[in-house]
Simulated assay, not measured.
Amino acid sequence: MPRSKEQFEAMRNATREKIHSAAMRLFVRQGFGSTNVQNIADAAGISIGLLYRHYKTKDQLFHELVAYAVEGLKRHSTRFESDQSPKKVIAQFVDEVYTDLIDGEELANLLILLNQSLLAGAAADSEPYDEILRVNARLLDSTAQLIRKGQQLGEFHPGDAREMAVYFFASIQGLAEMKVLLKSSFTMPSPSILTAFLFKERE
């Protein structure tokens, strides 16, 4: 019995997910320059011919992964710009980060991949590089605004909201890099540790 269009699409998506996962791991651990398409195909458990049916070049695959990461940053910015309680928004975000870094590698790999793209783009002055800078700036701005709102409500500690936003994301980025470097010996701090500098204790 021939496969349906939906079955073919499901198979295609499953193959792309395998490629994405394998490529992210290799780009993060070996670097973009030291990873070739054969490495990616082998790690994904597929033939190099099948990989080329999905991606013509390694660069195309890398840029798609970066675009995926950028979309994630945009979603977080939109969430931080909502009318919800600042403490609730930050607490939910930190819980998600905690779970992602405890249970898997995708978040850590995506954050490191974004950094690699920024470093490469800085030299090339590319359009993707400019977009990542714009999205990062929006995320920092929306986080700083959220922190100011939390301070006005008396839920957050006083301080420079912009500096606190930078510190917040620098902590998450650093934890992502430590997870990749330390592997099984990595210990993820609890959500309460990540928000201690920000949330006031209930009086």
Rank of each mutant, 00 (worst) to 15 (best):
P2V: 01
E6V: 08
E6F: 10
Q7G: 09
A10T: 04
E17I: 09
E17D: 11
K18T: 04
I19C: 14
A22L: 13
R25F: 15
V28Q: 13
R29D: 15
R29Q: 15
G33E: 15
T35D: 15
Q38K: 15
A41K: 09
A41N: 07
G45Y: 06
I48L: 08
L51G: 04
Y52L: 02
R53Y: 09
E64A: 06
L65N: 01
V66Y: 05
V66S: 00
A67H: 05
E71L: 00
T78K: 10
F80I: 00
E81G: 09
V89R: 06
F93N: 07
F93Q: 07
V94M: 10
V97P: 13
T99H: 14
T99V: 10
D100E: 13
D103L: 14
G104S: 05
G104H: 08
E105Y: 15
E106L: 09
L107F: 11
L111Q: 04
I112Q: 06
L113M: 03
N115D: 11
Q116M: 07
S117F: 09
S117Q: 02
G121Y: 05
A122W: 09
A122Q: 10
A123G: 06
A124L: 10
E131T: 03
E131G: 05
I132N: 07
L133R: 12
N136I: 00
A137N: 04
L140F: 10
D141Q: 12
I147P: 15
Q151M: 07
F156Q: 03
F156P: 06
H157N: 05
P158R: 00
E163Q: 13
S171K: 04
G174R: 05
E177R: 13
F186Y: 14
M188N: 05
S190I: 01
S192L: 08
F199W: 08
